[in-house]
């Protein structure tokens, strides 16, 4: 147990902070500790969590990706056009097209990184501009509202009327998110491939010498993020019920902040699914709590930014660095 806490200090602190925040919000507001609020939180966080599951794998493998959010917009557009030309399609087809499209865009990043030895931040900043620029150019910024019914329909998997008369409900994105979380957990925590990804991110030179296939690592990491990107794009459309080409612009940095808050390290080798979920939830709960407390929506981001800034300062100023700096 002590080892568990020692090895996962960030996760441990996150739980404490989330518990404290939840206790405070439960006491300060009536609505926070309610089934309706909880399901709302899950529904709104689902897409970010799916993105986070992909990004954490890339971070663990020692890379970074700035392009995934606009890649998701590309996926949405391509999928919408493909489905329309196929006469509507269905969920299975939607997942296949979106997934393949996402994986392809991820593979483009991986190929540039691996075969031309360009570091991931340079590659993905370039592809960010390419993906977004081409998308806006070809679509002229026009949104698609005329989507197949199955795609934009709100699918409620579970619902319950609460005492207050409001309905608590969980929608499809939550189920899909749970599956993605489970699969990512299996991949990075419990499969040999996942452990190779950790090793590769931790010490690439040592990984090469022990016989880990570098190309495979890049393609798996960025391919997985691509897959998650495709699925997240699909789910975001289901949630928003429209395809807006610049809807996800800027989302990459929000997800990145949440994932790194959850203990993943820029530079590789560290990060867990659990921490990642905690990171996304902490930000979601903070926004949700501010909303319930009646704080102006304009102030949300400011407070969230301040929370992240303080959190990373404190989590990096661990006790031993403080002691070392004093001496």
């Amino acid at each position: 147990m002590r080892n568990l806490v020692r090895a996962n200090t960030t996760e441990f602190w996150l739980i404490l902070v989330i518990l404290a925040l939840s206790l405070f919000l439960s006491a300060a507001t009536e609505q926070f500790f309610s089934l309706v609020n909880f399901t709302d939180l899950m529904n709104t966080s689902a897409v970010n969590l799916i993105f986070a599951m992909g990004l954490v794998v890339v971070l663990i493998a020692g890379g970074i990706d700035i392009s995934f959010a606009v890649a998701a917009s590309v996926v949405q557009y391509v999928t919408a056009l493909a489905l329309m030309s196929l006469g509507g399609g269905n969920w299975a087809l939607g997942f296949i097209i979106a997934g393949l499209c996402g994986i392809t865009l991820g593979a483009v990043n991986a190929a540039l990184i691996h075969h031309f030895r360009i570091i991931s931040i340079v590659v993905t900043i370039a592809t960010f501009n390419v993906f977004f620029g081409l998308l806006m150019f070809f679509t002229r910024g026009v949104s698609i509202y005329n989507l197949p019914d199955w795609w934009s329909a709100r699918i409620i998997l579970w619902e319950q009327e609460t005492a207050s008369g409001a309905w608590a409900e969980l929608t499809l994105p939550v189920l899909v998110m749970s599956i993605c979380v489970f699969l990512t957990w299996m991949l990075i925590g419990h499969s040999s491939t996942g452990r190779q990804l950790y090793a590769y991110g931790d010490n690439p030179e040592a990984a090469r010498r022990i016989g880990i296939n570098e190309a495979a690592m890049q393609y798996i990491a960025f391919g997985w993020l691509g897959l998650m990107t495709g699925i997240a794009g699909l789910m975001q459309v289901n949630y928003a019920q429209e395809v807006v080409p610049n809807a996800l612009f800027g989302r990459e940095l929000d997800v990145l902040a949440a994932v790194v808050l959850g203990g993943a390290r820029l530079g590789g080798g560290r990060g867990t699914v659990f921490g990642c979920v905690m990171g996304v939830l902490l930000i979601a709960i903070a926004e949700n709590g501010l909303n319930l407390l009646g704080v102006s929506p304009y102030a949300f981001k400011m407070v969230v930014g301040a929370i992240i800034l303080v959190a990373i300062t404190l989590s990096n100023l661990s006790l031993d660095t403080l002691v070392r700096q004093r001496t």
């Binding site: 929000d254 990145l256 400011m302 301040a306 992240i308």
Partner: peptide
Amino acid sequence: AVVAYSRAHPILVSLAMMIFLRGLGEY
């Protein structure tokens, strides 16, 4: 100061600052 004294990654620190300033400005 945060980058120098906490040794947190600059991407992360400036990202948090960006989110904070954007929120502050919008507010």
